[in-house]
Write a protein that binds this DNA or RNA. Structure first.
Length: 871
RNA sequence: UGGCACGUAGCUCAGUGGAAGAGCACCGCCUUGACACGGCGGUGGUCGCCGGUUCAAUCCCGGCCGUGCCAACCA
């Protein structure tokens, strides 16, 4: 007999099996292999990042699917990789250099990039090592990086094609500017800070002809330096006559027109007049465009007032605000202030207050790209899980503005455009040009900017598979099967992959998009460093083992729900590993070799547990197919714990501890068979544990790894309804007896005897051993034996009656109410359908609970109660 | 302001147009030869509120209240 350790050693298993799997090439995908393709391309983590709980969830769930499909015979590829994460990475390195007193600009572009690459090489392997500790079965031979050679080529190809198609263009626009990061930002990289305490500050512009004034209000008084209009509603009786006249700017020599604009101005708000700063406000900018106003920039890139700000030039934005207010007040133009709660746009990365600035940037034309991306989801080529996220996707794409793709950074894909010093023409090409494509001048200078980091991410599902080459991988695995990610990057990433995939490949990049929730702490708060409630997944793995850790994540991953992570949950789900291990040890005590392939004649309980196993397998598959990870986990948990351990193992003991014979053979076969399936069934969720169970299963010494065994099929374990019914009744009988015991305070060693209990003596005589073993109740006929401590009431259908023993009047009331309700339903359905159709169609419990039966039950319970009290 | 979710046992969550479920917590009993990281039994819920549809609603529909998220935001 093989002795197993008291406890499963998750760490030892991980150390042993992962290298074996890698060395054995079982993660490796072959496009020529058989099977329906199944592919996931990993959402690439930041190359210099560390594994956090979000990654842990994201990758555990992907691995569950990947392993399930791989075992199920699909030709599976899980392609891993990392992202260069433009601003984020540059920011980290800049900060490190600054700590050494080195500024990026002093270093120069070349040197700085060397530093970034160094940093990437130094800390870039971390996240991959941590992913491996999770047990993820990626094909590491295909690992990619957004700035590797192939992907850089894809980025360039994409840029050139879109440029040639007129979908990428250069223009001077009002854009979001980060005055600390010194770069343009896309709309998405701007975050709004809520509930900022601010003020609305009012002041007057004197009319140029001295005939009066017009009062405007603003949260940013300093922007008045760039005002080029005052807008009023054209139908406002207070101001309509002023349209076309001018006010005098108090600080700069400028006459400002009063314009009528019904779109911007709300007559009912404030004074009904609005100052217009077209160069530093998006709404005002539109007014400027509509009325052909001058757009005067008043800020430098680092957020100081420029030469257009007259005497304020050189002041920081916020300093200028104070001075402008003071000076306006001094001129007697201040007209009041009130507190105002507002929102503030901040750079996602640097935290700087974003300044809208007029700037020349590269843009991607979105309308022609977005329309097919909307259609693809509308027509079901891609499905969101849960479904409601498609609304988020639609609402953004339907209203999307052109995407500012250039960044004034150094870390990233440099824009493949060359400016001609001679004629100003821009040459864009797949190869670096030597001369201007217009005038032929060789005096070319490459554009200084790099592309938004999401520009390369948008190509990820096909660039990683080899695009723009027509690779075998691309042909085999595009479109991919599912994209798994968080809701926060539906805009940033999902939508962009959709339109780029559709544009270049003519097909959606993935058939399903699974959106998982956020991992929060046990109180439902977001994890954050400042709150100190961040859970480190690596620490959690060290503590409970990777299998238990993954089981917890999987079990908590409900569709469309955030996860509240707590040690309690982890401990609770971890215990499952121990429970299974002990059942496994029990099996090893009784089963030392692989049973004959042909099943021996099986007993009632053997057939029962195998039927339940079949149901479990079906439910697990259904759950996984519908991305219900939580249900898959709890299905396995419930079957194993409550049916296999609590019932089957107890049932099987009398055979296993009894004499050799068919019953023992059958029980051994059954134990082995359950674990043979269970080892595979749990594998996707708990791969190391599953592998250990598989390898240590008697007779599996040469069976190879469990991770490529066929996933169990429900059809392998057919069920017989009669068997399920019989065992169901038996369980009820046992439960009822136990309950009496507990209520009457009878120790389990006190033997009970059931006399003339029809159900037990007749139908279930064959299960007497189980009744004795599990409830210590013997079944007999005839007189009440004197030696029995208590005689359980005899009669028909004892299993029901026993339950009735504990009836209270409350229970009786409930039953009577139910009778009333059912009575009505039954008579209605009978009169409408006719009795025969009713019997054929009505749900079983309606039939069973006909009035007479229920009434009989109520009566019976009452009399039983009386009988019992009399004992 | 708009959109989307959510509201089921003390807590975290499943669930269904036809007899309310799990885990944790709690209360008893039990160290029985896989497991005390265990076993057995139990307490606990007008399934947010109000209407409607239906023979029947926790489930479908409408309204309301509460919570969360996303998006737009008024100078």
């Amino acid at each position: 007999m093989k002795t197993l350790a008291d406890h499963y050693d998750a760490h030892a298993a991980a150390l042993r099996y992962y290298p074996e799997w890698e060395a054995g090439g079982v993660f490796h995908a072959d496009p020529a292999a058989a099977g329906e393709p199944y592919c996931i391309v990993i959402p690439p983590p930041n190359v210099t990042g560390n594994l956090h709980m979000g990654h842990a969830l994201n990758n555990t769930l992907q691995d569950v699917l990947i392993r399930y499909k791989r075992m199920d015979g699909y030709n599976v590829l899980w392609l891993p990789g990392t992202d260069h994460a433009g601003i984020a990475t540059q920011w980290v390195v800049e900060r490190q250099l600054r700590a050494q007193g080195i500024e990026r600009r002093d270093l120069g572009r070349e040197k700085f990039l060397e530093c970034v690459w160094e940093w990437k090489d130094h800390s870039g392997g971390n996240i991959v090592r941590q992913l491996k500790r999770l047990g993820v079965s990626c094909d590491w031979s295909r690992e990619r990086f957004t700035m590797d050679e192939g992907l850089s080529r894809a980025v360039r190809e994409n840029f050139v094609r879109l440029y040639e198609e007129g979908l990428i263009y250069r223009a001077t626009r009002l854009i979001n500017w980060d005055p600390i990061g010194l770069t343009a930002l896309s709309d998405l990289e701007v975050e709004t800070e809520e509930n900022v305490q601010g003020e609305i500050w009012s002041f007057a512009y004197p009319l140029a002809d001295g005939s009066g004034e017009i009062v405007v209000a603003t949260t940013r008084p300093e922007t008045m330096l760039g005002d080029t209009a005052v807008a009023v509603h054209p139908e406002d009786p207070r101001y309509a006559h002023l349209i076309g006249r001018f006010v005098q700017h108090p600080f700069v020599d400028r006459l400002i027109p009063i314009v009528g604009d019904a779109i911007l101005v709300d007559m009912a708000f404030g004074s009904g007049a609005v100052k217009v700063t077209p160069a530093h406000d998006f709404n005002d900018h539109e007014v400027g465009v509509r009325h052909n106003l001058p757009m005067i920039s008043i800020f430098t890139n680092d957020g100081k007032v420029n030469e257009n700000g007259g005497i304020y030039a050189g002041l920081d934005r916020f300093e200028a605000r104070k001075r402008v207010k003071a000076d306006l007040s001094a001129l007697g133009l201040f007209r009041g202030r009130q507190d105002h709660v507002m929102t503030l746009p901040r750079s996602q990365r640097s935290g700087a207050v974003v300044e809208p600035m007029i700037s020349t940037q590269w843009f991607m034309r979105m309308k022609p790209l977005a329309t097919p991306a909307v259609g693809a989801v509308e027509h079901g080529f891609t499905t969101f899980w849960p479904d409601q996220w498609k609304n988020t996707y639609f609402s953004w794409l339907r209203d999307v503005k052109d995407w500012c793709i250039s960044r004034q950074l150094w870390w990233g894909h440099r824009i493949p455009a060359w400016h001609c010093a001679a004629c100003g023409h821009v040459t864009v090409g797949r190869a670096d040009p030597t001369e201007c494509s217009k005038c032929g001048s060789a005096d070319l200078k490459q554009d200084e900017d790099v592309l938004d980091t999401w520009f390369s991410s948008a190509l990820w599902p096909f660039s990683t598979l080899g695009w723009p080459e027509h690779s075998a991988d691309l042909a085999r695995w595009y479109p991919t099967s599912v994209l798994m990610t968080g809701f926060d990057i539906i805009f940033f990433w999902v939508a962009r992959m959709m339109f780029m995939g559709l544009h270049h490949m003519g097909q959606v990049p993935f058939k399903d998009v699974y959106i998982h929730g956020l991992i929060r702490d046990e109180h439902g708060d977001k994890m954050s460093k400042t709150k100190g409630n961040v859970v480190d997944p690596v620490e959690a793995i060290d503590r409970v083992g990777v299998d238990a850790f993954r089981m917890t994540l999987t079990a908590l991953a409900g569709l469309g729900r955030d996860i509240l992570w707590s040690e309690k949950q982890v401990d609770s789900w971890s215990r499952f590993v121990n429970k299974v291990w002990n059942a496994y040890r029990f099996t090893h005590m009784h089963v030392t070799e692989r049973p004959a392939a042909e099943a021996p004649p099986l007993g009632l309980y053997d057939r029962w547990i195998l039927a339940r196993l079949g149901t479990c397998v079906r439910n697990v598959r259904e759950a996984l197919d519908g991305y219900r990870f939580d249900l898959a986990a709890s299905e396995i948990y419930a079957f194993t714990w409550y049916e296999f351990c609590d019932w089957y193992i107890e049932f099987s003991k009398s055979a296993l501890y009894g004499e050799d014979g068919p019953a023992k053979t059958a029980a051994r076969y059954t134990l082995w068979t359950v674990f043979h399936a269970l080892a595979r069934l749990i594998h996707p969720i708990m791969p190391f544990f599953g592998e250990e169970l598989w390898r240590e299963l008697p007779g599996n010494e040469h069976a190879g790894t469990g991770m490529i065994q066929p996933y169990p099929r429900a059809g392998d374990f057919p069920g017989d309804p009669a068997v399920l019914r019989e065992v169901g009744y038996l369980q009820e009988a046992i439960i009822a007896v136990r309950r009496i015991r507990s209520e009457k305070n009878l120790a389990s060693k006190v033997p009970l005897v059931a006399v003339n209990a029809g159900v037990l003596t007749g139908m279930y005589a064959g299960q007497a051993a189980a009744l004795k073993a599990l409830a210590n109740v013997s079944v007999t006929t005839g007189e009440r034996p004197a030696q029995a401590a208590v005689v359980v009431v005899a009669g028909e259908e004892l299993w029901v009656n026993l339950e009735g023993v504990l009836d209270t009047s409350k229970e009786r009331e409930r039953l009577e109410k139910e009778i009333e309700k059912l009575d009505k339903s039954i008579s209605f359905l009978q009169s409408r359908l006719g009795n025969e159709a009713f019997v054929a169609k009505a749900p079983p419990h309606l039939l069973a609970k006909s009035r007479a039966e229920l009434q009989g039950e109520v009566d019976k319970r009452a009399s039983l109660q009386a009988a019992l009290l009399a004992l």
